[in-house]
Design a protein around this nucleic acid. Structure first.
Length: 118
DNA sequence: TGATTGACCAACT
DNA sequence: CAGTTGGCCAATC
């Protein structure tokens, strides 16, 4: 039995984010089945920064593609720099073409469907 | 131990 | 159109 907590799930999903891709807090929460806990996703990121979880929290932004948590990355543009380093264009702390970089766990991971019935 | 906050999102007023 | 509230789970005061 995986007595896994909501946080643990968030870490797992965020770690699965491929290079050069980003996702939103709500998307992860929605994938976990609790879209209401989108705030918790950001919380998990905050702890992941202070901890040794090794989570690419810089790849997680809000629904508008804005780096809401950049202040937690040392208070500098570190978060933006990390994303730009992955080939993502950012202007005014906002991801340009966020939709083309958006990585939806419920779609990319496909919950097991290579073929599928759909 | 109880109340509040916290990197959000969406609906309602 | 803009402001407020509700929801979710966990950690901190």
């Amino acid at each position: 039995m995986e007595e896994i907590s909501f946080f643990e799930k968030v870490y797992e999903v965020v770690k699965q984010i491929p290079f050069g891709r980003v996702t939103s807090y709500g998307a992860v929460a929605n994938y976990l089945g609790t879209k209401g806990s989108a705030r918790m996703v950001g919380w998990a990121m905050n702890k992941s920064l202070s901890a040794e979880y090794n989570i690419p929290a810089h790849r997680v932004v809000n629904r508008a593609g804005v780096l809401t948590g950049k202040h937690h990355f040392g208070g500098t543009d570190l978060m933006k720099q990390l994303l730009e380093d992955e080939g993502i264009k950012i202007v005014d702390d906002t991801i340009v073409g966020f939709e083309q970089y958006f990585w939806d766990p419920g779609v990319e991971l496909t919950v097991g469907t290579v073929g599928g019935s759909r």
